[in-house]
Amino acid sequence: MYLTFWGVRGSYPVPGAATVRYGGHTSCVELRSDRGKCLVIDAGTGLRGLGKKLAQEFRKPDGATYNLILSHVHWDHIQGLPFFEPAYIGDTKIVVHAPRAAAKELRQVIGGITRHEFFPVDLDAVPADFEFHEVVPGSAFEIDEFTVLPIGLNHPFGAVGYRVDADGSSMAYVSDTAPFDRMLHKQHFTAGIEEPSDEDREILKTMRANLVESLREVDTVIYDTHFTSEEYEQFPHWGHSTPEHALQICQEAGVRQLVLYHHAPAHDDDMMDRIAEKFGLLGKEANVVVCVAKEKMTLTMGEVTNPGIVA
């Protein structure tokens, strides 16, 4: 199994000279099995580039099916969807797996970003067929050779992470999430930290334990590390973690490699270099390999035999 980053940024895309090396597109990861089956994780602006690549790849005459698993539907994780080229090719099926997070209908919420006031082409009007599947934390499902386990996370309105097993190896995507100590994110606006009730604390404890259990011995974990610890002190209610928190979780779970991800828009390339260096060293002490996600970077989980492309 191997993966390629198409978008590593959080919140909004950041063009310009300061993000050329690490990349400015929002969340999107291409996951491939050894024989080339593709699973897309999140549909931020990075999805446009991936879609161009997929559209160029060989397609069987009876059309292709693309599977997308979404962590949640904040703009930075779905705004690439209207620019996904396969959506404009007939005989194509696009299956979107996402947490419902109290939405009445997934199609209505995700399709809502193409209401005519936002985008000229409605999701229902594109040549490809869209199918929506609700994922539920704790209920694993199969897509091709991938076994996908959704994991509940702590983020405004709700989000899920995913553990994916295939080809005898594993990876996990843990974004977006706040740490599990200060507050439990619910489905309303918070202008500042909201003291957790005793019940909230119990939920947070269970959520954290469940995350660590789900990540047990995973090869590579991609983790929301939007904030430095100083920034987190200022914005603990925004729903994002720090590299310190991520490293702690990965160390407890016995993860081999942690990839820092969902970089804050203000973190320029030089700052990401410093973060990479600092946490590379701290990772060594914790016995976890730490690296920083970069656009177009490819990582291999386990031994990839005969990497190929299957449509």
């Binding site: 895309p13 063009p15 310009g16 993000t19 602006t45 690439g80």
Partner: peptide, 18 residues
């Protein structure tokens, strides 16, 4: 100055990607 979607990356630095 960009239409449709933002374009980060080294090939869009002079005219801009926002």
């Amino acid at each position: 100055v960009r239409g449709s979607c933002a374009t980060p990356g080294g090939r869009y630095l002079r005219y801009g990607g926002n």
